[in-house]
């Protein structure tokens, strides 16, 4: 399955839920916010949100800023 994750192409053997995708790429507890195909997915919905072929996923978090 091919998706775009934060602007980069990524390939996975199977469909997966958003929770496992976040766990793979975000190691710390910094709040992570997820957007799937342009729509914000609430944390409580991650477990039931499947990432399918062609999905565009954005994972963002906080950094220093002025």
């Amino acid at each position: 399955m091919k998706i775009r994750l934060n602007g980069k192409p990524k390939e996975f053997p199977d469909t997966l839920v958003l929770t496992s995708l976040v766990e793979q790429f975000c190691k710390d507890k910094n709040p992570v916010i997820a957007e799937l195909n342009g729509k914000i997915i609430k944390l409580e919905q991650w477990e039931e949100t499947s990432i399918k072929e062609g999905a565009v996923v954005e994972l963002v978090s906080f950094v220093g800023g002025g």
Partner: peptide, 19 residues
């Protein structure tokens, strides 16, 4: 205190500013 939001760099670990 101000902070910013950024795409997580999926290739490398970044420090958590909130901590």
């Amino acid at each position: 205190v101000t902070v910013a939001l950024r795409r997580i760099d999926v290739e490398r670990h970044e420090e958590n500013i909130l901590q």
